[in-house]
Computed example of a mutant assay.
Amino acid sequence: MKTDDIEAFVAVIRSGSLNAAALSLGLTQPAITRRLQSLEQDLGVDLLDRHTKPLKPTRLGQEVYGHCRAILREMDALRERVAGDAPPSGLLRLGVPQTLGDALLLEAVKDIRTRYPELRTQVATGWGSVLVNRIEQGELDGALVLFPANKVFPDGVEARPLGAMSLQVVGAHDQVPGRAQRLADIQGQGWVLNPDGCGFRSSLQRTLAEQGQALRINLETYGTELQLGLVADGQGLGLVPAPLLARSAHRDRLAAIPLKDFKPEIQLWLIHPPFLGALQEVVEGFGRGAQGLLEG
Score class of each variant (00 low, 15 high):
residue 91 L to K: 14
residue 228 L to C: 13
residue 234 G to F: 09
residue 191 W to V: 06
residue 268 L to S: 05
residue 45 V to Y: 14
residue 26 G to M: 03
residue 3 T to R: 05
residue 57 P to G: 06
residue 1 M to E: 07
residue 279 L to M: 00
residue 205 Q to C: 12
residue 260 K to H: 15
residue 216 R to F: 10
residue 9 F to V: 02
residue 221 T to L: 13
residue 8 A to C: 05
residue 107 E to M: 11
residue 291 Q to F: 01
residue 293 L to K: 11
residue 118 E to R: 13
residue 1 M to G: 14
residue 159 A to D: 01
residue 53 K to T: 14
residue 261 D to Q: 14
residue 263 K to P: 01
residue 61 G to K: 09
residue 157 V to R: 00
residue 221 T to S: 12
residue 245 L to M: 10
residue 266 I to E: 03
residue 291 Q to E: 01
residue 266 I to S: 02
residue 106 L to V: 12
residue 101 G to A: 13
residue 264 P to I: 00
residue 83 A to K: 13
residue 193 L to Q: 05
residue 80 E to W: 11
residue 103 A to H: 11
residue 268 L to H: 04
residue 48 L to S: 06
residue 143 A to L: 03
residue 239 L to G: 15
residue 110 K to A: 15
residue 238 G to K: 06
residue 142 G to A: 06
residue 244 L to G: 09
residue 97 P to W: 00
residue 278 A to G: 12
residue 137 Q to H: 10
residue 227 Q to V: 05
residue 214 A to G: 10
residue 92 L to N: 07
residue 250 H to N: 14
residue 7 E to M: 11
residue 243 P to C: 09
residue 16 G to W: 10
residue 200 F to I: 02
residue 137 Q to L: 11
residue 295 E to G: 15
residue 196 D to M: 14
residue 94 L to D: 05
residue 229 G to I: 00
residue 79 R to Y: 03
residue 289 G to A: 07
residue 50 R to A: 02
residue 183 L to S: 11
residue 41 Q to T: 10
residue 166 S to F: 05
residue 207 T to Q: 14
residue 247 R to Y: 04
residue 177 P to H: 05
residue 90 G to H: 07
residue 278 A to N: 12
residue 295 E to Y: 09
residue 170 V to D: 07
residue 199 G to I: 13
residue 35 R to N: 09
residue 214 A to K: 12
residue 295 E to V: 11
residue 77 A to W: 03
residue 130 V to I: 05
residue 201 R to L: 09
residue 149 A to W: 02
residue 169 V to H: 09
residue 69 R to V: 11
residue 18 L to E: 00
residue 209 A to V: 07
residue 138 G to S: 01
residue 28 T to H: 09
residue 67 H to M: 12
residue 42 D to C: 09
residue 142 G to L: 04
residue 10 V to K: 03
residue 13 I to E: 02
residue 21 A to Y: 02
residue 106 L to D: 14
residue 82 V to L: 15
residue 75 M to S: 04
residue 98 Q to H: 10
residue 5 D to H: 15
residue 258 P to M: 07
residue 264 P to S: 01
residue 227 Q to N: 13
residue 34 R to A: 15
residue 65 Y to T: 00
residue 67 H to F: 07
residue 294 L to I: 06
residue 178 G to M: 11
residue 93 R to Q: 04
residue 276 L to F: 01
residue 189 Q to K: 14
residue 294 L to H: 10
residue 290 A to E: 06
residue 177 P to Q: 11
residue 93 R to W: 01
residue 230 L to A: 14
residue 223 G to N: 13
residue 257 I to R: 07
residue 54 P to S: 05
residue 39 L to T: 09
residue 115 R to N: 11
residue 194 N to A: 15
residue 178 G to E: 13
residue 126 G to C: 10
residue 88 P to I: 00
residue 121 T to V: 15
residue 14 R to W: 01
residue 41 Q to P: 02
residue 137 Q to W: 01
residue 60 L to A: 08
residue 102 D to Y: 08
residue 274 P to D: 05
residue 8 A to R: 02
residue 50 R to G: 01
residue 22 A to H: 06
residue 167 L to W: 10
residue 70 A to N: 06
residue 50 R to S: 08
residue 57 P to T: 04
residue 279 L to T: 02
residue 209 A to H: 15
residue 96 V to G: 08
residue 16 G to S: 08
residue 167 L to N: 04
residue 32 I to M: 04
residue 261 D to W: 08
residue 282 V to I: 08
residue 38 S to G: 15
residue 229 G to T: 03
residue 218 N to R: 15
residue 222 Y to C: 08
residue 133 N to A: 12
residue 273 P to T: 00
residue 44 G to F: 09
residue 106 L to N: 15
residue 205 Q to M: 08
